[in-house]
């Protein structure tokens, strides 16, 4: 990789880091806005690292497929488990409230 590409990637990463910290301190996007902003910036940083530092743009497609499959696996795992847990969460909260009430006595 050429020196400008290396340094350019690095400067991009530093800029995005400054941006994400800046948004954290300076801006209240309300609701989940800040979380979404932070994740979008993190994903941009991750893409830079993957594409250039890890040369995925120049690499064999198969290596990218491995990475993408793993990410897909993680996303499936998290989203399915999350969906289920949030479905039964009321049953958990009710019990925890009752236990807390009993412990007060």
């Amino acid at each position: 990789m050429s020196i400008p590409a290396l340094l350019g990637t690095f400067m991009g990463l530093i800029f995005l880091t400054a941006l994400t910290v800046g948004v954290h301190y300076g801006v209240d996007l309300g609701g989940k806005g800040n979380l979404i902003a932070a994740m979008v910036i993190a994903t941009m940083k991750a893409s830079l690292v993957l594409a250039f530092f890890m040369h995925l743009v120049f690499d064999k497609r198969y290596n990218f497929m491995i990475f993408a499959t793993s990410v897909l696996g993680v996303v499936l795992f998290i989203s399915i488990a999350f969906t289920d847990v949030s479905q039964y969460e009321p049953m958990v909260q009710q019990r925890q409230a009752d236990l807390a009430k009993a412990a007060e006595k």
């Binding site: 499936l76 399915i80 289920d84 479905q87 039964y88 049953m91």
Partner: peptide
Amino acid sequence: FLVWGHHMFTSGQSKLA
């Protein structure tokens, strides 16, 4: 990879899952 929850039909897993 998509069927693990069939071990949990009676475990307290939600109806939807």
